[in-house]
Design a protein around this nucleic acid. Structure first.
Lengths: 197, 197, 197, 197
DNA sequence: AATGAATGAGAATTCATTCAT
DNA sequence: GATGAATGAATTCTCATTCAT
């Protein structure tokens, strides 16, 4: 009986998504064929379609997976006070330099572009930005109330700026893996310490 | 005699690129067909190939054109002192909210992703970032020498951060044309004034 | 002991054929997948192949089954004299209007078309027409001998005409379940009574 | 300039439809591939799609074409009085035996089956039956008024019976090109002369 | 016997590119 | 130069059939 457990199904799905992520990171969504993904995952093309309705669905799943893991990274630094937040954020920026993150970073940029055309991907991308933005904005407001941050700064705008600093670094890293991540992070650190002093 | 031909050639090329830019911004590089571009420009598909070797060449040309116009925007605020630079930079951020910029912004995001796969596009994109980065880094260094900026900050890193703040806003604007550009710019303004005070 | 196996085998086969008939009547031979038939019969796709060599074999079996049940209907009115035959024939025409016959009628039209390409189906279809044709022709000849039918009519041709009148009604009913079956049968009745008077 | 006249377009379309008709008559709609049609018409697969949106559209066009030519045949015998109609009808029946009609007849049967699944084909098939039915019914009514046909027969039913006699002969001819068309027609002739005497 | 996951050949369709006119 | 018809390779997706369990 090839009846297979729930977890096997899930594992298979992950296997395919992993292969797809590697292909997509390497060649982009549109230059990657289903055959490529099948070959990369060691499966047959037909089988891929038992797990995903079509290529579009795979792209959406990849985007969702990407933002989930992103959310996981964010939660690491998700304490509650600004002081705890800052080291987490800087760590997040530093992590972009890790060679293991190369695939993720490249994938992220492709997803950003894809979000402009695929509404499902857009929804996922937007949610992936909105959630942390709201968290950060709330923390900024709290810090302003405590007098730890200048009162004049719009919390939402500031949150967006910090997200942009992350996005821009990701983009620049995707283009040039050898960029000086440390100089970047130190510049950000300097800015933040000006803010909180 | 060859002058006219040259001019005409150039004009035609621009015409086609304009049509291509509209198509690409709308549907992305890979969902846009040569037939779409021909239709949008009012020419025949065959004629497009007299001006561009292939689709790849059109994408590269679009990317180059994009970074050229970007450079043009940057030059506006390219005075020499930090004080002149800041209003220009803030103006640049504000300009992203203009409806007329919508196409440019969307196109930019697509180019960022394309740069990951097409070396020619990557070269163009990298140059488009490196040039302003060096300009800004030089200005930062000068300002640090004059004591107008804290000495501890790595000029290159700081330049990258400002570029990231632009890129991230562009990305967020591409996704959501209705975002609060003003709040963003005020947050950046706050950061900058902390820096320069 | 083999009796039970035999019975079971036959029953299973019938079960599958019933499911296949429903699917085929609904969607045609070529738009119906083995998976559809498996789902409709509550079995697994693999199991279907223990009872039929391939899809072709199922279609042939369906055609055979159809003509068998058709033969059963014909036998009802298969007495021996023309007088007994006529009510049976008219009853057969009337039966086409029954909602329960809808599936059979639709299936029949599909089989007619399939017979043009599959020699096995053709053989079955031809036999299904030839047998009643010969019966009717024989009866016509007998009636002509008894002087109950005009002598000049070719018995075989007339038999074919009556078959055509059935086939055509079946076809028209398959297209439009709401057609006026009664008017049709009364017209046929009129024709027949002219013949036999 | 490969700009091509309207008539060339039309001719090309007819060319493709002709090739498709041959393929469809031979192998049925679903065993015929677009490649087959392209090969049969001496064109490339891609070109077929400049003339037809998809395979479905080709099938519908084939069905429409079939019924148009059918209507042409009918008009031949479309005089106005029953007396003129009868020879035309008998001629129509006889024409089914012509070898040149073999393709048409086989195609017709496939269309009948296809009409059960494709609404567009159904509409075409229904119109192809309804129009002559109404014509015949009107003529029957007129003949009844003139006392040339028995008054008791339902005109519409009788018209359907004559259509069925045609359809059934077509079907039987499709299966067996060698059937005795003459015997069939003489039987019909006998029936008709009983009716009108 | 039974399952249903897995296979992979095959079919429809698209579209970059060419080329006859 | 210009056209747009024509090409055909490439790609997505389906589904009959097999096979490990």
């Amino acid at each position: 009986m090839p009846k297979v457990g729930e977890e096997h199904l899930r594992a298979r799905r992950e296997e395919i998504l992993g292969a797809a992520a590697r292909c997509f990171a390497r060649a982009g969504f549109h230059r990657t064929t289903i055959q490529d993904i099948a070959a990369e995952s060691g499966l047959s093309p037909g089988l891929v379609y038992r797990y995903f309705a079509d290529k579009e669905a795979m792209i959406t799943a990849i985007a969702a997976r990407w933002h989930e893991s992103q959310a996981g990274l964010l939660r690491t630094g998700d304490a509650g006070t600004t002081e705890d937040l800052v080291p987490g954020y800087l760590g997040l920026l530093r992590s972009l330099a890790a060679p293991a993150e190369r695939e993720r970073v490249r994938l992220g940029v492709q997803i950003w572009a894809e979000a402009l055309r695929a509404p499902e991907v857009e929804a996922v991308a937007r949610a992936g930005v909105d959630a942390p933005r709201e968290v950060v904005a709330r923390l900024v407001r709290a810090a302003q109330d405590r007098g730890e941050l200048p009162a004049g700064l719009p919390p939402d705008g500031l949150a967006r700026v910090f997200i942009a600093i992350y996005q821009g670094l990701a983009l620049q890293t995707a283009w040039d893996a050898g960029l000086d991540n440390d100089a970047y992070v130190r510049a950000v650190e300097g800015l933040v310490s000006l803010l909180t002093s």
